[in-house]
Nucleic acid binder design. Sequence first.
DNA 1: AATGAATGAGAGTTCATTCAT
DNA 2: GATGAATGAACTCTCATTCAT
Lengths: 229, 229, 229, 229
Amino acid sequence: MPRKSSSKATKAPPASSIPEKAQVANWRNAENRNERGRLIHEALFTAAAEIVGERGYEDTSITLITQRAGVAQGTFYNYFESRQDILDQLLPRLGKEMLSYVGQCSRQGNTVLEREELGFRGFYTFLKIHPHFFRILNEAPSFAPRAYQAHIELVRSGYMRFLKRAMENGEIKGFDEREIEVAAFVMMGARLYLGHYAARVGDDNDPDIPDWVTQAYCKLISHGLIGGA
Amino acid sequence: MPRKSSSKATKAPPASSIPEKAQVANWRNAENRNERGRLIHEALFTAAAEIVGERGYEDTSITLITQRAGVAQGTFYNYFESRQDILDQLLPRLGKEMLSYVGQCSRQGNTVLEREELGFRGFYTFLKIHPHFFRILNEAPSFAPRAYQAHIELVRSGYMRFLKRAMENGEIKGFDEREIEVAAFVMMGARLYLGHYAARVGDDNDPDIPDWVTQAYCKLISHGLIGGA
Amino acid sequence: MPRKSSSKATKAPPASSIPEKAQVANWRNAENRNERGRLIHEALFTAAAEIVGERGYEDTSITLITQRAGVAQGTFYNYFESRQDILDQLLPRLGKEMLSYVGQCSRQGNTVLEREELGFRGFYTFLKIHPHFFRILNEAPSFAPRAYQAHIELVRSGYMRFLKRAMENGEIKGFDEREIEVAAFVMMGARLYLGHYAARVGDDNDPDIPDWVTQAYCKLISHGLIGGA
Amino acid sequence: MPRKSSSKATKAPPASSIPEKAQVANWRNAENRNERGRLIHEALFTAAAEIVGERGYEDTSITLITQRAGVAQGTFYNYFESRQDILDQLLPRLGKEMLSYVGQCSRQGNTVLEREELGFRGFYTFLKIHPHFFRILNEAPSFAPRAYQAHIELVRSGYMRFLKRAMENGEIKGFDEREIEVAAFVMMGARLYLGHYAARVGDDNDPDIPDWVTQAYCKLISHGLIGGA
DNA sequence: AATGAATGAGAGTTCATTCAT
DNA sequence: GATGAATGAACTCTCATTCAT
């Protein structure tokens, strides 16, 4: 009765051929103890981020992390409490980088719509620059749920500030504050989900959004899909 | 330097205290061999679905599944090829149930907007009835990516049929077909993401969507957020 | 410190591509119960012999045997006590066939030497006809030691009869009876070992002995290697 | 129809009652890390050799090896790649020890015959000293075929050097080089097979060769069995 | 007598974590 | 602080055997 068919080893790609970066930071040349500590911490963090990006949280082992960081296994536990600890730190930190980058992009615009469009584009540009981030973000609900909730909260509050200002400016009408929050979530979901959409075509970890998608998205949020006069 | 604080075992709930359901189906009283086989298969499937719903794919072991189903470990392999096999079957089957249910709901409506609203509500009703589905769906990209892609495709094509008919009816204007697809993805993303929104308030696996959220969502997709006259 | 190198999976060949014979005997058409029983027994025995020949004792499972014999797993235990039971029966029966065949060959000769040469050749001919026998015999010391000892005893006693008659005829001189036994063992070892010799060149399970090897062997046992006048 | 009789568990001895040696090396008292590593490696290797000698390759499990070596199961994998890895190393290493020992014995002699006799005796002395070697060697064709072929090759080439020198000295006449090789194989087979002969009488793993056997063997190879003038 | 699903002990292996050096 | 070997619990999966039908 077992299904013989297709799904064999349908899981994550083996990723054995992914070229591993050179050891992340040459902490052995550090000037003093503090500096050395900082560099090792950094090396471990970066190694973990890369590996999660390449192979997913599940296949990220301490062995792999320390090997790539160029330190001994035991050293890991001088910098992080546990495997889960470092996994939990990935999204918060990279998420903040993302928000900062996207915020900078967004602020170039003058109207809400312009800003949303620039933020939207900026998100996908960030993914290009940090190819590991998409997977780190996507798998976080499963593997670092607390961190994920915190990230969502951060994004939400940023969006809310942005949208409330627009309400005050009169650029958004007909929505009260809690409705605005719904919109914020829809827009957050759109970014993530259109990433998957891109993945339908291209590489899973390298979503590429064509221009007309951006425009369709903008059209949708500005005039709606259905009742558009 | 390690973070002593909060993050300890921030992942899945310890779960040893999760009340396990009684053995899922009393297959021992089956009338004949075929029936017994069916019941065991069912018991294994249901057990797996419940456990993934409660603890996530990663912590779903064969031991746990067979214990809950009330069969020996070896029995598992009479019904499924491997652990991955059963995990791969979860979403396809439950996903189809979901689509069928949501489709039925949606078809009660007369206009596109009504239908979308009913489908939207139906989705969350389904989550109430099948509290494990949300996590099974959410973690699928990481643990059953093939199944996930297939599911997305199914949802997308259903949505597209729905929206194209609306275009033909003249209920949707100003969007060409590929733009419609973008809208479809945004709407799919909205449902999932508002599930997380609900999770902010209530229980992670039991998203509850208040009425005004639905209405805000409908307002958004019908008139847009920004340019709304 | 582990050895990374060569020896990975150095063991038995996977043998998955070996063409499996059709189900061995169509016992379903048997005329009466006794006949059917006989046919099933035969089918199981033959299947086991083939599989041991192809994959070795270790990889010979009940599942494999019954599948090839075309009966259900449980049926096996109506005919044999256990897996070990059937493995123990392989060599005794096939060994007797071998002895009978080789004996017939040998008896065509007139002198001891002729007879030994014909027996020697006959042994390798038998291996050609029964390609499974070599492996069944070779692995028997590990997997069916009792059967192996019994086989050795059979061969030894045959050899002894043969050689003692030659002593009585005056064809062998200068050896007493227990020394004759040593010679018998050396000759038995030679046959087996030259099989391995052949395997150095050709296929492991298909030893092929060139003519000059036979002649060198005969020269050795007739005049000795060293003191040869 | 099943054979109720004798053959029950005719295979390996039950072995639960085999007195296990004390933990092989008290590595806990090692002076430094390197030394400890060496001792553990040694303990694992020796444990494996002993167990294979007592119960055969098939029944040699990681659990058994590590228990006897007095280390945790996981420790095994710090020293060997896999179960097969250690099994593959047994014969090469012990085989070389054997050859070295036998070679030393042999070189005490002056004539070919003397040397062959001393080598022959030396082989059985080695078996006395290393009672596990016989089974390790005998079962190797089934369980470590690559290692076995390599061993055969080693023995063969040693024998060939020995015999060719004797040809050049004029101690062997009437054989060309490839015929010499046949003789080498016969002699290798004789040693192994007379081990089995001894096993008929004594303990399986402790072959004891009486003096007259050696002499009969020497007579056979020096003057031949049959045509002896 | 034939079936084939259920069983469960036991296998090899992985890996987060500890800790003596 | 850095090291890396030792640990052992936990995992998935196999398969000889049993037994109700």
